[in-house]
Simulated scan of single mutants.
Amino acid sequence: MDSFQLPLLAAAVTNLLRLLALAGALASAGVTAAEPDDRQHGDHEHGVGAHGGLIVPLGRDSYHVEPVFESGGILRLYLLGSDETRIQETQRQTLTAYVKPAGGSETVALQFESDPQEGDADDKTSRFKGVIPESLRGKAVDITIPNLRIEKERFRVGFTSAPPPDHAAAMPAALADNESTTLFLTPGGTYTEADIAANGRLTAQQKFKGFQAKHDVNPKPGDRLCPISETKANPLCAWVIGGKTYEFCCPPCVEEFVRTAKEKPDEIKDPEAYVKR
């Protein structure tokens, strides 16, 4: 090493020692190198959407989809913007999806058709509708949509979900006439003689003869809930119990609730407890 290189080497060593000293001081003060934050890439948790479905991100959170399972095997897809509270419209199109039991291998093709919401432009849609094959209803399923077009972009959508059981299958069976008469026209528990009079001294089958139940499994906040099915209640299917008016989705649920009021009165809550929060 010649005399010309010695000053350069000495300067380099001096700078290195200064850097080491600075690093030691920072470590003593509790300062460490910053780790990259994965959330800056859009990798964050997504909650439940306005319709009760789990939010699914598209393309680093450029957009979102909210799949919502309904009774009868209906599956609706709601398109949302990068802000999950904003509705996202796209061109109307037919989507081909593939559905299989969760963890399974055999897939079945499923078509989603445009199902525009009120307020969508004439040639746009913010919602799609498909029907799950009957053999897969009520089961956890894997669903893949290879090609969803939003504006000029194309996205692959995939999610696994366990839809709620078909509501009709979960309904309590209707009582025979004599059982129904005994249930509704004799007091017991919190179900009183005054309640019987307030309900017209009728059974639920008599009072709601011809009633067409609509089981809305996606009630909105503030909607009254059927105490039995927890679907949206119908104000036309109301019954007085304990001097208070309760709303139900169908007559068989009225029967089940009256039975509970008579046999397990401590389980009965005030009507305001049966409201979607």
Rank of each mutant, 00 (worst) to 15 (best):
F4D: 13
L6C: 12
P7D: 11
L9K: 15
L9Q: 12
V13F: 05
V13A: 14
L19W: 13
A23H: 13
G24L: 05
A25R: 12
L26H: 10
A29G: 01
E35T: 10
R39D: 10
H41L: 09
G42T: 10
G42V: 01
G42M: 05
G47Y: 11
G49R: 11
H51N: 15
G52T: 03
L54W: 08
S62W: 14
S62K: 12
V65T: 07
E66M: 05
I74W: 03
R76L: 14
R76P: 02
L79S: 02
L79N: 09
D83A: 14
D83Y: 06
E84R: 15
T90S: 14
T94M: 04
L95H: 03
T96A: 15
V99M: 08
V99F: 11
E106L: 13
T107R: 06
Q111I: 08
K124N: 02
R127Y: 03
K129C: 10
G130C: 05
P133F: 02
L136G: 03
G138V: 05
D142H: 15
N147K: 14
N147V: 08
L148I: 07
R149D: 04
R154Y: 11
R156S: 11
V157K: 08
A162Y: 01
P165D: 12
A168R: 13
A170R: 15
A174V: 12
E179C: 05
S180Y: 01
T182I: 06
T182F: 08
L183H: 10
L183E: 07
G189D: 07
A194G: 01
A198T: 06
R201C: 07
L202K: 15
A204Y: 06
Q205I: 00
Q205L: 01
G210P: 05
Q212A: 14
V217L: 03
D223G: 00
R224L: 08
R224Q: 10
R224V: 02
L225M: 09
C226Y: 13
P227N: 04
E230C: 05
E230W: 08
N234T: 06
L236C: 01
W239V: 02
V240C: 02
G243V: 15
T245K: 15
E247Q: 12
F248E: 10
C250Y: 09
P251K: 01
E256N: 06
V258T: 04
T260A: 11
A261M: 10
I268S: 04
D270C: 01
K276Q: 12
R277L: 10
